[in-house]
Design a binder for these strands. Structure first.
Lengths: 215, 215
DNA sequence: CGTGGTGTTGATTACTTTCAAGATGTGTGG
DNA sequence: CCACACATCTTGAAAGTAATCAACACCACG
């Protein structure tokens, strides 16, 4: 990523916001930080304490096993907040998937943010628990169907759905290999359930079929 | 379960508590409720709003797919609190695994419990996310190893570990079939990693071996 | 117009599930 | 206290699904 790309990113800060930044009481609002595709926002083991609000772009949250296997526990799109932890250190890695703008809220030590954080934590907990059902009890097609429906819903429920992440990311989110993800996409295309507008953008042609699969 | 068993349960209310009940400000503390093995504590879709503190016994939290597939998202042992939700209804089922005592805290509507709930929610979130790694990226042996280490740690880290739940429950927690769970137990026995004291109680002989597997 | 990264497709292998039978354990009633 | 019955658990053989290994296609970029 070089000068041209950086310029493109700067530009976006002047575009209308997809989502207004929330006002976190007791937290210092910093200007938007920019992260290039693939760059780290924070690492496992680092000191936690800030909140991160996605202005544009997308973020992946993940853990690694010693041998390099990776599990993405969540994607965060524009308008979502992440970064809160149960204790003082980060248990996960956070990386920008694409060029991403993040507004960082530094919380003064000793400040009680529980009122604002609890709904976010509960929402995240429910999502994680629902994802457990997908990983524990659903097969490859069902996992991909559930994923596409989730992405669709989070983007307003329109027929066209952007997939800001690679097949590799999708695989590491769904507990599948990249090849299996690719094969499932092909099968869904053949069945006329989805259509690929581009590699990272699909159109949902038969929502009912997806619903029947993804539960 | 009949009169004799009920009497046995009543008796336990007079035994020393494994864990003192926490004092939840703004919540009404009710006497301990008793649940026989396999009985429902709450169901998906029911109105939420209370907190449940396990006095003794064990509880399983789960979801079902339309065709009956079940995913247990968490077990709760003595001293743990569960039942909080992101919105007004329960998204999961909660059942007593064995004879179980639960103290119910009814929260008056409008009461702000966020200060007390946030640490519990964050702890649950971290656990769920770690469980995602297990379900998404670990094989059968690794899953069982991780499970045994988790149960061990939650019971004080002693060599002897009680497993209050059936193989079926373990399977539905780890995303495996009962047969696979059984086979893994057999392999761990053959390798001398664990020893079965009874069906529901094991001794860990080689902790390092488990750690190497369960990450 | 080449080059590296990303995605797709095919053949084979490996792991887990499924189906089936038998063993073990627990609780009940005689 | 023993015998029977049901539930739970274990083990084996066959089948199925996804992973792995490998080659090729496509796309974005320089």
């Amino acid at each position: 990523m070089h000068a041209q790309a950086a310029a493109k990113i700067e530009l976006q800060s002047y575009l209308p916001r997809q989502s207004p930044s929330p006002a976190f009481e007791g937290a210092t609002l910093n200007p938007v930080s920019f992260f290039h595709a693939g760059t780290e926002i924070y690492a496992q083991g680092e000191k936690a304490g800030a909140l991160y609000h996605v202005e544009f772009g997308a973020v992946r949250i993940y853990r690694l096993l010693a041998d390099g296997r990776r599990q993405i526990s969540a994607f965060h799109l524009a308008g979502e907040t992440f970064g809160f932890e149960a204790d003082a250190t980060h248990h996960f890695f956070a990386e920008a998937i694409n060029a991403t703008g993040v507004r960082v809220f530094r919380v003064a030590p000793g400040t009680d943010m529980s009122r604002q954080l609890l709904p976010l934590a509960l929402k995240g907990l429910t999502r994680a628990q629902e994802h457990l059902l997908v990983l524990g009890r659903q097969n490859a097609i069902e996992r991909v169907a559930a994923f596409l429906l989730d992405m669709c819903e989070r983007q307003g429920g329109l027929r066209q759905v952007d997939l800001p992440m690679s097949r590799n990311d999708i695989g590491d989110y769904l507990g599948l290999t990249i090849e299996t993800v690719s094969r499932v996409f092909t099968r869904l295309k053949e069945k006329g359930v989805i259509r690929l507008l581009s590699l990272r953008s699909i159109e949902i042609l038969k929502r009912e079929a997806l619903l029947a699969m993804g539960e």
